[in-house]
């Protein structure tokens, strides 16, 4: 985080000097100031590596490791396993995903009742999607109901899921959103986060937080000065100051 720390110090210097009225900073002055900020190459590489690892781009991470010499803070092989779990959930093979997570680390589902419930819930959703309604009902009684008894907060979700069974045209019913792809993605990202946590890895990449801080800092600065803003994060283009 040293990179960001340094950048923020620069901003706060600016904020202090421009307390009274809005100061105008030209693009040249701005670029000159930015040039004075030193950022270490290794830090940049680490941020990129952190992004690739957290998001699960295993091949890219491997290539990047070789080309940049940046060591990831995690065994890259574990990314492959994690991605396999994620993919299994995304394609509806929840049982397969559960087995894979258990092979990876049996503690994950044993110590995350909420995640376990969501996976089981997803499993039931898939059964309903495939029209295996009797199985789904049996599954709800055998697997999901006991979890609802253990934890009150699951009951509501359980009821909502079981409600799917009551409608003939599930795609048009009030709880139909459970059948959306977005539900699978939600469950998949929950599993992904839990695996990362179990591997002592932060569940979110650092790059987005840095960009959030940049936007926040710019908003603060807007009150004090007119300066070349970055409006488009993707191009990071410095806009001309609008007076």
């Amino acid at each position: 985080m040293s990179v960001l720390g340094f950048a923020l110090v620069q901003f706060s210097d600016l904020i202090e000097t421009m307390a009274s009225s809005k100061k105008v900073i030209t693009k040249e002055e701005w670029e000159k100031k930015l040039n004075d900020v030193k950022i270490r190459k290794e830090d940049m590489n680490k941020l990129v590596m952190n992004f690739l690892v957290t998001e699960g781009y295993v091949e890219a991470a491997e290539k990047f490791r070789v080309e940049s010499g940046t060591e990831p803070d995690i065994d890259l092989a574990t990314i492959t396993d994690r991605m396999a779990v994620k993919k299994a959930v995304q394609s509806g093979n929840v049982e397969d995903a559960i087995e894979k997570v258990n092979d990876l680390n049996p503690e994950i589902l044993d110590t995350n009742p909420e995640l376990f419930f969501h996976l089981q819930q997803q499993r039931m959703i898939e059964l309903i999607r495939n029209g295996r309604l009797e199985e789904a009902l049996e599954f709800a009684q055998e697997e999901l109901a006991p979890r609802g008894e253990e934890n009150q907060s699951f009951l509501e979700e359980l009821e909502k899921t079981v409600a799917l069974l009551a409608f003939e045209d599930v795609s048009n019913c009030p709880v139909g959103d459970l059948l959306d792809m977005s539900q699978r993605l939600k469950t998949a990202s929950e599993v992904n986060a839990a695996i990362l946590t179990s591997q002592s890895h932060e569940k979110d990449p650092k790059l987005p937080s840095l960009l959030k801080m940049l936007i926040w800092a710019q908003n603060q600065l807007d009150e004090k000065a007119v300066y070349p803003r970055i409006n488009d994060l993707a191009s990071a283009k410095l806009e001309d100051p609008v007076v």
């Binding site: 087995e99 258990n102 049996p106 376990f116 697997e143």
Partner: peptide, 13 residues
């Protein structure tokens, strides 16, 4: 063994 393990993980009952 795998089957038993996968059945019991997360499942107190």
């Amino acid at each position: 063994l795998r089957e038993v393990k996968n059945q019991i993980i997360g499942n107190k009952t």
